[in-house]
Design a binder for these strands. Structure first.
Length: 898
RNA sequence: GGAGGUGUAGCUCAGUUGGUCAGAGCGCACGGUUCACAUCCGUGAGGUCAAGGGUUCGAGCCCCUUCAUCUCCACCA
């Protein structure tokens, strides 16, 4: 069988063909009947809003490498794919699209809106899936899931109800982060802090009892209308006489108390803090401690409250439906209806007019913004659903602390612990429509509330109709359940038994708090078991200048364009190579071109091998039939197998891949192929047959080693080589074989290579073109290295016309080269410049003498000899011996020149 | 205010438990029509491993200090 390959690797045609074939033959689906250990990965589900970006490409390349490696090792591997509904992100996009059509959510109503959302999901969810396929991801598509599919929704309801029944989910008026743009609450994790230039306004509040002016500094004067107290520190001597006094809140003339609270820090500002419990998290706490009223002065869309808002609130209180902690609403009068920004200006101007603005200082401070739209977050007291985190956090901390779950690299556990140990209750309700609707039902008739999975429930008190809570859940609430909801939970499915806990989670460090931590406490809480054993963390993919890739900068690189141009394997190589876990990486043209060149190199090596092949099956010949170069390549191949395997086990994917790169390019292509060419040309001989088998064995094995990283090219080549089985995907990953350890031949080849390199080097320095052949005389004690059989190497690779191993050689007109075991003479006649030769040899002599002095010094150091491991000391001794031999050679060469 | 990352050749970065670790790719210089590959082959130049101190027989690697740079977290008025 003669197989042929095209001259240049053209990835596109074969990628589609091979992926379809793998998929159709069901190779991605685990054989659940087979008895084998499981290895499971659940995909971090991409948002349906997006399309594949470089971050996804990296994330999924790493997962595919792991899963393909384990599959080839014989594990029962499952990679569960899916997408995330991305509640807020998707809703924002749909609202945006509707705005362009002149529509609003309210106009079309909830049902029509959800219709649009599902259509969106069909369109864009499908797109990202097909993009994942182009990368070569070997996901089990028969198990594809969506965070809002029926199963996931069931899991969400189940968890909600269970937690509610345990008292770990509660509803109440609490301080939350409100995004006036998205018009919803968001969790603490979803707030991003940005540095902004602001001001520090020093206001004066008149004191009722003494008539003094109390100076108060604030960064947010517009909240003053909602002040319900002023706090001082009880120990502050400056204000000791004011305990129990009141201030008159300017502009509205309201009397509010001066309270003593630890929150007022004597060392900061004026030591006096205005307290706005409804619009500041700290002030909320102070308000709780002193039972201060909550006065809301902002609307949910970022304006000052007015008469209508107040009326609505009054009605709520009058009806008796206002719940505990419900804030009052102020009619802000002349400020009503202004945006908070306008109100700030107006209030400051009015205070200034009244002489109550003492000074304004510029100040830089961190302002919370919405992670989706980057609108400034308004802290608000609002009635929301929360998860009580304290009891849930503890097992989640322990399971990482005990090492049951490991972060790779380890340092990210610090991040995790810090977040988990300082966690606050999780606000999970969102004023959005796209998402899992909260399974709480209210009876308008009698105010009863029921939390249940049953959507058609009746009021248990009065039997009346129930109204479901209009809010939806934080999108991360369903993501948190992903490792088990995708396997069928809450049912006790076979998949759950077989594949949970999952093995490795691969994700970026930017998502540890959002997602990883929540999956861990969820797994512990509902499964009583960790969701995964290892969290492999990777960094961000940045552009060539090191900037974050973003839409607004327009510096994003589209992975699909890269795949079209260079192939998926090249993209995968570029992403997986030369970067360590947890570190950011840069993506550049140079990198992808280098990757493309590597694929082409592999392709051509295979092309060469196939051109010289006429065997149909490959059997490794018995050792006595192997030539030195065969044993050498097998030995190095075997070491590569060991190293690559060890690095993959340690998740050192970048190192494993560079081991492979080095082996393929520098060892296999640059040396072995060149070394066996003469034998491959000698068609019909036994040596030729041996060479064919060895080169096929090594190339085939190398393709297997490389397959997890570059699945397409390796499958294509492997298929064309003599092979057993239907696909490289399911072939056995190579393992270390002690029988292939040929260390003697390694030493011989090292010597030969050193000699060949020395000759090439010397000829290059002298500008002798390779076409000018010259005789080579070798004087050496290492006769077993420089055998007749290896002469051809020098002819082929070192431009030798003929090679002779001689007892001694004297010829003044010869170039002399010295290695640690041989002296090489190349009679080049006129080309030799004796003065230059002498200088060169002297330089070499100086170098080697320096080295000898260094090693001798080391060995003369008693504590080195006494304390260093024997192997290290022996190594130094061997080195010294070689150096001395080399020096002797150089000295005799110099002698020869005289 | 806390925590962490990074700093190694001109550029981008590897360097696993301290002992052939001073490396790779790109770039640069010189040479090459060798029948797999010019997306290639051969050869070469280049680094006090940010600075200083310490531990050790031995330090890019461990410890301390400093500088530069990036990131995360944090309710500071």
């Amino acid at each position: 069988m003669k197989q042929e390959l095209a001259k240049t690797y053209a990835p596109n045609e074969l990628e589609d063909r091979l992926y379809r074939e793998w998929s159709e033959k069901g190779y991605f689906t685990p054989d659940t009947d087979r008895d084998a250990p499981s290895y499971t990965i659940v995909i971090p589900p991409p948002n349906i809003t997006g399309q594949l970006h470089m971050g996804h490409a990296l994330d999924n390349t790493l997962q595919d490498i792991l899963i393909r490696h384990k599959r080839m090792q014989g594990f029962r591997t499952l990679w569960v794919p899916g997408t995330d509904h991305a509640s807020i992100a998707t809703e924002v996009k749909i609202v945006e699209a509707m705005r362009k059509e002149g529509l609003t959510k309210e106009e079309i109503g909830r049902e029509a809106f959800l219709d649009r959302a599902w259509k969106w999901k069909e369109q864009y969810g499908g797109r990202i899936i097909s993009q994942l396929k182009r990368l070569g991801s070997s996901c089990d598509w028969t198990r594809e899931r969506f965070t809002m599919d029926e199963g996931c929704s069931r899991a969400v309801k189940e968890v909600f109800v269970r937690l509610y029944e345990k008292g770990l989910i509660y509803r109440g008026n609490r301080m939350i982060n409100w995004c006036p743009c998205c018009m919803t609450s968001i969790s603490d994790a979803e707030v991003e802090y940005e540095e902004q230039n602001g001001s520090f306004w020093h206001l004066l509040y008149p004191i009722k009892e003494t008539g003094e002016m109390l100076e108060i500094a604030t960064t947010r004067p517009e909240t003053m209308l909602g002040d319900t107290a002023v706090a001082i520190n009880a120990d502050d001597p400056r204000y000791a006489h004011l305990h129990g006094c009141h201030v008159i809140l300017p502009l509205i003339g309201k009397e509010i108390p001066i309270v003593c609270d630890e929150h007022a820090d004597m060392t900061k500002g004026t030591g006096v803090v205005k307290i706005t419990p409804a619009h500041d998290p700290n002030d909320f706490e102070v308000g709780q401690r002193h039972s201060l009223p909550l006065v809301r002065v902002f609307t949910y869309d970022g304006h000052m409250t007015g008469a209508a808002d107040k009326a609505a609130c009054d009605e709520l209180f009058a009806s008796g439906k206002a719940s505990v902690g419900e804030p009052e609403v102020l009619d802000c009068g002349k400020y009503a209806g202004m945006t908070t920004k306008e109100a700030r200006r107006a209030i400051v101007a009015d205070l200034e007019e009244l002489g109550l603005l003492k000074k304004v200082e510029p100040r830089v401070h961190e302002v919370g913004t919405c992670y989706r739209c980057h609108t400034t977050i308004e802290p608000m007291v609002s009635k929301q659903w929360f998860v009580a985190m304290e009891t849930l956090a503890k097992p989640a901390i322990d399971v990482v602390r005990s090492g049951e779950i490991k972060f790779v690299p380890e340092r990210f556990d610090k991040n995790y612990f810090h977040w988990m140990e300082n966690i606050r209750d999780w606000c999970i309700s969102r004023q959005l429509w796209w998402g899992h609707r909260i399974p709480a039902f209210y009876c308008d008739a009698c105010n009863e509330m029921v939390v249940t999975k049953d959507e058609s429930c009746k009021c248990p008190v009065c039997g009346g109709e129930m109204r479901q809570d209009p809010d939806t859940l934080d999108t991360w609430f369903s993501s948190a359940l992903w490792p088990f909801s995708t396997l069928g939970w809450p049912d006790e499915t076979e998949d759950l038994k077989m594949f949970y806990p999952t093995s490795t989670l691969v994700t970026g460090y930017d998502i540890i708090t959002f997602w990883v931590s929540r999956m861990i406490f969820s797994g512990m809480a509902y499964m009583n078991e960790k969701p995964f054993s290892t969290v492999l963390i990777h960094g961000l993919v940045r552009d060539a200048q090191g900037r974050k890739m973003s839409k607004s900068l327009g510096n994003g690189i589209d992975p699909l364009e890269i795949i079209d141009k260079y192939g998926a394997d090249a993209l995968r190589f570029a992403l997986a190579t030369g970067n360590a876990p947890g570190n950011d990486m840069r993506f550049s043209d140079e990198k992808i071109e280098a990757a493309r060149n590597f694929t082409n190199k592999i392709w051509n090596a295979a092309r060469f091998v196939l051109m010289n092949l006429d065997i149909d099956t490959c059997t490794l010949p018995a050792p006595e039939k192997l030539c030195i170069e065969d044993k050498w390549i097998l030995s190095l191949y075997n070491k590569a197998v060991r190293d690559i395997g060890a690095n993959l086990e340690k998740y050192e994917i970048g190192i494993a891949l560079s081991n492979l790169y080095d082996f393929i390019w520098d060892i296999f292509c640059d040396w072995y192929i060149e070394l066996v060419k003469p034998r491959l040309n000698a068609v019909g001989t036994e040596e030729n047959l041996t060479a064919q088998n060895v080169i096929t064995y090594v190339l085939g094995g190398t393709m297997k080693l490389l397959h997890p990283f570059m699945p397409f090219i390796t499958e294509e080549i492997w298929q064309k080589l003599p092979h057993e089985g239907d696909t490289i995907m399911l072939s056995a990953y190579p393992t270390y074989d002690p029988a292939l350890d040929f260390s003697r031949e390694e030493i011989h080849m090292e010597r030969l290579i050193a000699a060949i390199k020395a000759i090439r080097n010397r000829r290059a320095e002298m500008n002798v073109p390779p076409s000018k052949k010259a005789k080579l005389f070798i004087v050496t004690d290492a006769r077993d290295t420089f055998t007749d059989a290896v002469s051809v190497f020098f002819q082929k690779l070192a431009s030798a016309s003929e090679v002779a191993v001689v007892d001694s050689y004297v010829d003044e007109s010869a170039v002399q080269l010295v290695t640690d075991c041989a002296k090489l003479f190349i009679p080049l006649g006129d080309l030799v410049d004796f003065e230059k030769e002498r200088q060169r040899l002297n330089k070499e002599r100086e170098n080697i003498e320096r080295e000898i002095a260094r090693v001798e010094g080391k060995l003369a150091n008693e504590s080195f000899v006494a304390k260093a491991p024997a192997a290290v000391v022996d190594g130094e001794k061997v080195k010294l011996g070689k150096y001395r031999d080399t020096l002797a050679g150089i000295l005799s060469a110099l002698e020869n020149l005289k």
